[in-house]
Design a binder for these strands. Structure first.
Lengths: 366, 366
DNA sequence: ACCCTTGCCGAAACCGGTTTCGAGGCAAAG
DNA sequence: CTTTGCCTCGAAACCGGTTTCGGCAAGGGT
């Protein structure tokens, strides 16, 4: 009987020494067999892996880590400070990451921070203790302290979003700019010629992108942008409400509004009510995010949905690849958002300056 | 100059060897000094800790783990399978745990599972690889496979909630039964004598507790429970809607309803509208959870709020204590929920069988 | 028959810590 | 002046893995 090393009292764990003893091999040989070194005979490799299976051997993650420098753990630092818009998606996001990590037998280490400085502090600690091998950075900003930190410490990372200086960055993102562009074209097809804009927080990278997509859509539709009906810096329903009031209070208010966030649109709903207008009747709205509340709004909000779970999974897989050495330039993916056509963008009462709606196009998903 | 061991190219990490060399001490001595052994002179200890501070030495978590058997990491397995009611709280919960863990320089490892069997599988993997030292088990059931697993593998755990067999269990919980009891007494004080009940999923431990609290409240108010106006097994808004319809369709419907979940109450709102009644006018409602939507409901929902962040923090601290050896019997805490009085439980139109409301008591927080 | 690869594996160093054991120094006790 | 004992620290084993290095045997070429 092989000698079993006991650790906690009563708990038996099969170590590589037990395996080696059982097989009559040196433990180094067993290790190399298990890790696919080329200097191990095929028969031996088989014998080893079978015995490992049979005895239920699982290498001790930390023991490997100390030599290889790999903890097989992905880091995620959540900013719990401000009321995050990704709150409703958090479970899906975590699920996606965790699943992507599990597939490679990696794990996910989560920490929280209350502001940007705290984020950097927390990440520094995780790096110093080598608790994680790399980071997933959600909600990237145009200039992002976390990215600078990772670069300076030479620790792998992947962005969920994009950033100002792409040098050395890998990312996965949803193509918000295409969505916004498509939103404009869709509204223009419905006859709208005065299309307003409510955009997100300035420093987030996605804000610029979506704004650019909006402008590109206008240009493509042959419409001139009017700064008077464009508001930025919105982050909450409250903000959206105020922005909506501003837009609808114009001498020549928009007949349609594109919102960079569902939350902004929800605020706009209330602003419209206050201004004596009603979304889906005489004001068309298209937004972005696909939060559950959007479906329950009255009228149901046409929006672009993001598959957060899939994003998490992709991010995990890509970060692991990055850690294993794939150059960042090969790890850049941008996938389209999916339009969910509901009724907030089809008007039942046409404003005076709108022509009758053309023949009903089948809704055009990307 | 001390020799610096480089690991990744270009990256310098201060190891305990560097520290020992710099100080002219044996590395074992340095280790003992840092860990507060009694056989180190006070002066030496000071000299060591100062040097560690100055050189920015942080012990490598995994290296410690391999000898001590402590990864200094807490495990949390989320069930992403069913649409979890704790979704809105997840950020707060994670924040609380993470903060509690950070205070002791521990970290949080998160994984997800899609069902109960998957939970056990995932936990088993984390245990086998010794990635975590213990688990936080949220949403405990009366008989819970996770608890059985932890007990059989002798790995520490703490419940967020309670369970059928308390033997060997540590827990932190919110006293939902007291809240439900108080809800009944409050409604009785307002004159209600027919108080309905909508309860949660049967197998969760909290459901029994809250139900018991409801019944205790009835007894204390001198009211007889009527099974006809009690519905259980509700978990979603949809369920709540159906349960509400059943209650309000009775020949002798309740004038007030206590809900074990805010979500159920939200469904009840819609059921009331369908049945030609209106919450806050001729139907009083008190619920439990304190989700954000409750404040936005029309009328705003009176409910019991749970400080999820504080719960997370307490759970982390208690689990660490458990791992360090505190017996489970000393780690059992139940704290009260906080009543948030809003307008859903004060009627503007009294049903025929209700006496006029007595003098307005100041709302009585626990 | 001899040399040179090549394939395969054992032995030992190593990773960065923790813990055990024992030795030296110094003070108090005999 | 020993002896005893405590305080403090060095040396080395240890934890569970990975990786380097070298040696032995078999096989191929001349």
């Amino acid at each position: 009987m092989a000698k079993i090393t006991t650790h906690r009292q009563g708990q038996a764990r099969v170590t590589i020494n037990d395996l080696a003893a059982e097989l009559g091999l040196a433990k180094g040989t067993v290790s190399r067999a298990l890790n696919g070194y080329s200097d191990i005979a095929e028969g031996t490799r088989l014998r080893v892996s079978r015995a490992a299976e049979r005895m239920g051997y699982r290498p001790l993650a930390q023991a490997q880590a100390i030599r290889t420098g790999r903890a097989r753990s992905l880091g995620l630092v959540l900013n719990a400070g401000r009321s995050d818009a990704h709150k409703p998606f958090l479970t899906d996001f975590l699920d996606g990451i965790s699943r992507g990590a599990s597939e490679e037998s990696w794990t996910l280490t989560v920490a929280t921070a209350e502001d940007e400085a705290d984020e950097v502090t927390t990440m520094t600690r995780l790096i110093a203790e080598r608790k994680v091998d790399g980071f997933i950075l959600p909600r990237t900003k145009m200039v992002d302290a976390r990215i600078r930190l990772c670069k300076s410490k030479d620790v792998p990372f992947i962005l969920y979003g994009r950033t100002g200086d792409p040098e050395g960055c890998a990312w996965f993102d949803i193509c918000g700019e295409d969505a916004m562009r498509e939103a404009v074209l869709r509204l223009a097809r419905f006859g709208h010629r005065r299309i307003g804009w409510i955009g997100g927080m300035q420093d987030y990278a996605y804000t610029n992108l979506r704004r650019g997509g909006f402008l590109a859509g206008l240009a493509e539709a042959g419409l001139d942008p009017d700064p008077a009906i464009m508001v930025d810096g919105v982050f909450t329903v409250e903000d959206g409400f105020n922005a909506g009031l501003r837009l609808l209070d114009m001498p020549e208010p928009p007949t349609a509004v594109v919102c960079a966030l569902d939350l902004a649109a929800l605020g706009l709903y209330r602003a419209a009510a206050r201004a004596g207008r009603r979304v889906g009747r005489d004001l068309a709205v298209i937004a972005y995010d696909g939060i559950p509340e959007a479906a329950l709004a009255d009228p149901p909000l046409t929006t672009f949905a993001v598959d957060t779970r899939a994003a998490g999974r992709a991010l995990a897989a890509m970060l692991i690849a990055r850690i294993r050495g794939t150059p960042p330039e090969e790890l850049r993916r941008v996938v389209p958002a999916r339009l969910i056509p509901r009724s907030s963008d089809r008007l039942s009462i046409l404003p005076p300056n709108l022509p009758p709606e053309p023949a009903h196009h089948p809704t055009t998903p990307v």
